[in-house]
Design a protein around this nucleic acid. Sequence first.
DNA 1: CAGAGAACGGAGGGACATCCTCCGTTCGGA
DNA 2: TCCGAACGGAGGATGTCCCTCCGTTCTCTG
Lengths: 203, 203
Amino acid sequence: MAETVTGEAPKERADSRRKRLRLIEAARSAVAEHGLKASTADITERAEVGVGTLYRRFGSKEALVTDVLLDGLAEIQAWAEAALEDPDPWAGLSSFLFAYTEAQLANLGLAELTSGDSHELPPEVAERSTVLAGAIDRLVRRAQEHGVLRADVTWRDVVLISIAPIGGVECLGATRGEGQWRRTIAIALDGLRAPAASTLPDE
Amino acid sequence: MAETVTGEAPKERADSRRKRLRLIEAARSAVAEHGLKASTADITERAEVGVGTLYRRFGSKEALVTDVLLDGLAEIQAWAEAALEDPDPWAGLSSFLFAYTEAQLANLGLAELTSGDSHELPPEVAERSTVLAGAIDRLVRRAQEHGVLRADVTWRDVVLISIAPIGGVECLGATRGEGQWRRTIAIALDGLRAPAASTLPDE
DNA sequence: CAGAGAACGGAGGGACATCCTCCGTTCGGA
DNA sequence: TCCGAACGGAGGATGTCCCTCCGTTCTCTG
């Protein structure tokens, strides 16, 4: 057999690789649309693959979904770090906030992750979330040190604002406009600008 | 028999009345906690009543839940009208916003109703929602006419802000503080004050 | 090109969850 | 005391979802 001394991975068959990639992409879109509770049937149908294939490759639905979440988190982490490089601290913070919210609108799973809707998260996902929180904290502090962001807000306030327009598609029966969420963020950003017009209550 | 000429309701038996009231109260708390998908088991257990009793009295789970929702909406409607009587238009709007948000935090069913999470609502509930939207619209316009609220916002912006802190109990893994939601609303209110610091994007 | 075995598909087992009906039992009120 | 209204909750019907199993198909190698 190919039991070489190096013990390398035994080379993936071409069809196998194709379906593995299709599964990951399918899981991404299923989680984006239905959140962390996306079903195996939903994923395998999008991938045009049998359920068996999913379990042979990933062992469980959760393992596959975790992969997808980590990918999404990594992308947002990259945005946050890029925003920290922006010479204008206010522009960095506000553009990150728009991007983060838009990402959550496009990906329900990410939104559930951020808001803690799903009560049990894989430890690795929880850990990467904490790292992201740290980056957002740095964005906030930098803006405050430059005097462009009111001094009494925390990174938690910013995260909470980012998820503000998520969830639901209407408001009191009226259809929500396509750009409605940008207005909410814009209003909140005006409220975040220094100097503060009022004092915030305690957390 | 008690078949009187007046044909009045045949007088409710004492135990029957007691359990009916218990069911309504139980449904209120079940819907508050679990939203519109609160189960019959959840309701009947809280009421310490058999499922049969629920169906004998209300015909279906939906009828009972609808009753509860209409009650909740009526209460909020009353707050909105009281806010319209406030001599200070800004105080009226902002106090209503805090109260509305707090009500949704305390009652998940109401929050789902507002955000349109539940795709099928009984027509009567939808109708009362529209009436509430009208009252909020009047609150907004009055504040704008007095020049205390930026001119480019609509009642939809206000409703969307009211549901902003709903959903989820954390942010990126950190436990959300008890008063966190008040901060979000306070920030948004600062952003709503006239004069506007920026121009809002289109809806 | 043919054969070995890796990879595949999807029916179906098993484990819930949920709504509502049905009927033997209990209890209030005259 | 006794009748019928009201009760409780087991269970039928339906649906959902995760994952396993095994006969079938396809890839790669010699």
